[in-house]
Design a protein around this nucleic acid. Structure first.
Lengths: 152, 152
DNA sequence: CGATAAGTCTACTGTCTTGATCGTGTATTA
DNA sequence: TAATACACGATCAAGACAGTAGACTTATCG
């Protein structure tokens, strides 16, 4: 299960992408994004900070400030966002590339049957999810303009 | 990430399956399984209970009692075990068949872009993992006999 | 210059989940 | 009937999850 936070992050990015598509270069305020995405404003602050630190969006301060998308939707990787918000996506710590951790009581990774089986599943899964981008969400069928109301 | 509990469950099943393969029909005691799988004994009790309630293993009480596998390894579904031990495997509650739950603030599932994208990923993922059985783990490469030492 | 509208940063707080442990049961059989 | 095994509910500590709150910085408008 992906977390609530991840859903909020996606809704926020959808709101920003929808706005950018309309040719609007003006940033959206946290308040505005919160309204459109149905996210508690104070919680959204934290989420946007994380997404910004991941280099997907940029913020400007002061009057008429806000957030805007600084990548093209087809360059915003969903799996990267998942890692940023929810942490490693590997089923086992010993299968994670970026957050590798040896399983404490594991004597031999090479012969571990649990690792072996989940590795196979995981590689196939990665192949699918690594290719997903924000663009796939934008183009997904005849979705409404309204971001609010998307799966919470 | 799968939980520690799930890893323990898999190791316990591997121990039982290894034993069954040797033509041993005698049940293994919790104590024995705990030793072989490196699981805290008192914790393993609960895990085996759940696995038994799922119909994968059977228990006999009293002297010379213990647990034994009552399904053929190729009939023990890893995804079912995952659901039993770790809960739903769908990325969103609204995508789970057995544990379906409407997302609270979702006004229209049919047009939800988050749901749509994750649905596509999920179906592909299901295809892979639903076919996995305990047998795949048993036959996985040249694994050692010893269950202990498998990925924790 | 100062009021105001924005984002930033550090804490904190309930509630639930995870990973256990403990005590006390009940069933079986030598 | 004592010993050996599983059964089951209660409890617990630590961490994750979802959110709140307060104080602070930055930019712009009048």
């Amino acid at each position: 299960m992906i977390t609530q936070k991840m859903k909020y992050a996606l809704k926020a990015l959808l709101a920003l992408a929808d706005e950018a598509e309309k040719g609007h270069p003006e940033p959206l305020t946290i308040e505005e994004i919160a309204k459109r995405s149905g996210t508690p404003k104070r919680f959204l602050e934290h989420i946007l900070l994380e997404v910004r630190n991941a280099g997907v969006i940029a913020s400007t301060r002061g009057r008429s400030g806000g957030y805007s998308l600084i990548k093209k939707p087809n360059e915003v990787s969903i799996s990267e966002l998942l890692r940023t918000i929810d942490g490693p996506i590997a089923p086992l710590p010993c299968l994670s590339r970026r957050a590798y951790q040896r399983c404490e009581d594991c004597t031999d990774e090479a012969t571990c049957r649990i690792r072996k089986v989940f590795a196979d599943v995981f590689w196939s899964y990665l192949l699918i999810i690594e290719s997903l981008t924000l663009e796939d969400m934008l183009r997904s069928a005849e979705a409404q303009q309204q971001v609010i109301g998307e799966t919470r």
